[in-house]
Simulated scan of single mutants.
Amino acid sequence: MSFETQIFPIDIFIDTSIKSIEIKGQCITLAAAIQLTGQLKLSALLAERQSAAGQTTSLKPLQLGIDEAGRGPLLGSVNVAAALLPNNWSDLIDNQPLLNTPLSILTDSKKLSEKKRDILYPLIQQHALGFLIAEIPAAVIDQINILQATMLGMRLCIEGLLEQIAKGIIASKLIETTNKAKLLAVEVLVDGNRCPELDYMKLSNLGLPQSAIDCQAWVKGDARHTSMAAASVLAKVSRDQTMYALDTKHPQYAIAKHKGYPTKVHLQAIDTHGVLAEHRRSFAPVAKKLDESP
């Protein structure tokens, strides 16, 4: 797995398709490509780390929030997002680190109206130090199951951003002038009850040892920590945008209303119009319809 990036004086842009993946030493060709899109504001990140490095009490680990959207629908992708907010904005929501910032209304995306999510979506991308969104299509969900597809999306988002962060910090020579362990330390905060299995050997080869990565699973974490809340909005809105595009393509399915979830309207549309290429064939209602087809 490799990431194609364009490097500018300020930002690194990630826009790549993953067509195969190594899992536990075995290379697997994916049934469809996973799309990764995101950005790392390297100059801003380095400036923040450099400033904090001179003040050892304020050099806390980078906090990378991870969340997903779309595990339950019968249709379309599951989207995973990672968000790296500025140091002073990364904290428990109850501590109000976002007060008087452009993200002051941010909380768990499920508690926000669609209008507020749409407002926050570009603001998060504008003000985050880094973010990455993975869109895992239905064919991959059918290939490896929804849990593993979600874990894979999380892994790709985490490794994708950490790879660029490690390369950037090492290339900047910051580690030659400060404590490497503190500078590269990162807390990966995953919304849910389990963390994905990362390729620690690859990350270690990039200068980021396993001891520097603290992966934590937080149940309902998107309502507790700002970085996970930011990731939840990125995942939710990016998936909704895909659903609206499918609705335009297939208006008879009313996808804009149900977003692929198994509502009565959606199930009736499947009965009337059949199964789309974007439906998840491994999910029971879709599989049943396929079994009934002549």
Results as ranks from 00 to 15, higher is better:
residue 4 E to Q: 08
residue 248 T to Q: 15
residue 4 E to P: 00
residue 160 G to L: 14
residue 147 L to G: 08
residue 253 Y to T: 08
residue 223 A to V: 05
residue 39 Q to I: 13
residue 200 Y to R: 11
residue 249 K to P: 00
residue 256 A to E: 11
residue 71 R to Q: 06
residue 247 D to R: 03
residue 175 I to K: 03
residue 160 G to T: 14
residue 242 T to W: 02
residue 29 T to G: 12
residue 66 I to L: 08
residue 256 A to P: 06
residue 7 I to Q: 11
residue 39 Q to G: 03
residue 230 A to I: 08
residue 116 K to V: 10
residue 197 E to A: 09
residue 53 A to M: 09
residue 141 I to D: 02
residue 7 I to C: 03
residue 98 L to F: 05
residue 86 P to M: 01
residue 138 A to K: 03
residue 270 I to P: 07
residue 3 F to A: 07
residue 73 P to N: 06
residue 175 I to H: 11
residue 260 G to C: 10
residue 238 S to W: 00
residue 86 P to F: 04
residue 149 A to C: 05
residue 56 T to I: 15
residue 118 D to R: 01
residue 284 A to Y: 09
residue 83 A to Q: 11
residue 243 M to C: 02
residue 292 E to A: 15
residue 32 A to M: 07
residue 27 C to W: 04
residue 103 L to M: 10
residue 144 I to A: 11
residue 92 L to S: 14
residue 123 L to Q: 14
residue 221 G to R: 10
residue 121 Y to N: 05
residue 158 I to W: 04
residue 137 P to A: 02
residue 290 L to M: 08
residue 35 Q to T: 14
residue 45 L to H: 06
residue 142 D to G: 09
residue 37 T to E: 15
residue 46 L to V: 05
residue 152 L to T: 02
residue 3 F to T: 10
residue 11 D to Q: 08
residue 100 N to Y: 11
residue 86 P to I: 06
residue 82 A to V: 05
residue 45 L to C: 00
residue 163 E to D: 12
residue 249 K to F: 00
residue 145 N to L: 15
residue 159 E to A: 12
residue 51 S to V: 02
residue 288 K to G: 03
residue 272 T to Q: 13
residue 242 T to V: 07
residue 146 I to D: 05
residue 30 L to D: 02
residue 217 A to E: 08
residue 99 L to F: 09
residue 278 E to F: 08
residue 94 D to E: 11
residue 102 P to Q: 03
residue 211 S to C: 10
residue 48 E to L: 07
residue 260 G to H: 06
residue 91 D to G: 04
residue 228 M to L: 13
residue 13 F to D: 07
residue 175 I to T: 15
residue 47 A to F: 00
residue 219 V to E: 13
residue 177 T to A: 04
residue 206 L to I: 02
residue 230 A to D: 00
residue 208 L to V: 02
residue 122 P to R: 13
residue 277 A to W: 05
residue 274 G to W: 13
residue 141 I to A: 03
residue 3 F to I: 10
residue 118 D to C: 05
residue 4 E to I: 07
residue 196 P to T: 04
residue 228 M to R: 02
residue 16 T to H: 13
residue 33 A to F: 00
residue 127 H to C: 02
residue 54 G to H: 14
residue 261 Y to G: 05
residue 104 S to Q: 12
residue 22 E to P: 01
residue 82 A to D: 09
